[in-house]
């Protein structure tokens, strides 16, 4: 029996196992899940010599601490935070050798929300439908970490990256800018409602989670009342429930829904959304979709 594992010393507010998710099952009601800040997840894996598909830990605001049973290499990326090994400072954004029995502590985020901890060999939680990602909407994949819990690690894939440190790319900005492509249901909103979308001063609500980034701000005026017959919801959808405030659908979003989607934020902008703390101002920049169909 391998002793490659770690024990959770401090689970933090919400720490989950994540990888690139389980796309391709939306027709069964299964969300994609996976790391919300995907570039940070990929980078952490590369730093410790893992393929980008290996599972990492995603923390929320307060970080987490684990005791490793065997010597391993760890890297912390995403939201910047203090990193210590048995209390001694270690670099963020670089491979860190952690001796057997030592505690690796990723502290509270000093900016942003979600840090990523990659371990050489990856977190070897049981895969479900080809992914180890925790899906908090439907409860698939490993449960969020709890103090005292133990998770296995895989065998290292290869040597860690030969870097001293990485540039802190994509530090959370003072304002979250969300470009969005209008549609498919922008016709459910009045001209004034669409103007509100483009000019309204929104803020990230503290009710945000892995399912969606909720916003506070001026409600969008609807041109039509009621609900749509349920339709497929894409990742990045700006769905507008009856209160008129857009919700940006993140990785654990429901795969179908009955509220109109006014626009869709391209996936490459979702990592920034995943790092926006409650209260961050949000500016939505809509543009029309490329026209197609009907000749």
């Amino acid at each position: 029996m391998t002793d490659r594992a770690f024990c959770v010393v401090r689970a933090g507010a919400l720490t989950t196992v994540q990888d690139l998710g389980r796309a391709g099952h939306a027709h069964l009601g299964v969300p994609r899940a996976g790391a919300l800040d995907e570039p940070a997840h990929r980078l952490a894996n590369r730093l410790v010599g893992n393929p980008e598909t290996a599972a990492t830990l995603e923390t929320t605001l307060t970080g987490c601490a684990v005791r490793v049973r065997t010597a391993t290499v760890v890297a912390v990326t995403g939201a910047p935070c203090s990193v210590t090994v048995d209390g001694r400072p270690a670099p963020w954004g670089a491979p860190v050798a952690v001796p057997a029995g030592a505690v690796l502590d990723a502290g509270p985020a000093t900016a942003g929300l979600r840090s990523y901890l990659a371990f050489a060999g990856g977190v070897a939680a049981e895969p479900v439908l080809g992914s180890r990602a925790a899906d908090l909407l439907s409860g698939l994949g490993p449960a969020p970490l709890s103090d005292g819990g133990v998770l296995p690690l895989g065998d290292p894939y290869g040597p860690p990256a030969r870097v001293d440190a990485v540039v802190r790319a994509g530090l959370p900005a003072a304002e979250l800018v969300l470009p969005c492509v209008l549609g498919p249901r922008d016709d459910w909103f009045t001209e004034a409602g669409l103007r509100t979308l483009a000019t309204g001063r929104f803020r990230v609500s503290s009710a945000s989670n892995r399912i969606g980034l909720r916003m506070e701000g001026p409600p969008l005026e609807r041109a039509k009342d009621g609900e749509l017959p349920s339709e497929g919801m894409p990742l990045g959808a700006l769905q507008v429930p009856p209160n008129g405030l857009p919700v940006l659908f993140l990785n654990d979003h429901p795969t179908t829904g009955g509220y109109p989607v006014v626009g869709v934020v391209p996936e490459r902008f979702l990592a920034a959304a995943a790092q926006a703390t409650p209260g961050t101002p949000v500016r939505i920049v809509p543009r029309p979709a490329r026209s197609f169909g009907q000749g």
């Binding site: 939306a26 027709h27 497929g232 795969t255 179908t256």
Partner: peptide, 11 residues
Amino acid sequence: REIVPAARTVL
């Protein structure tokens, strides 16, 4: 990546 049939639509 995804084909999602629903009530009156397919995504």
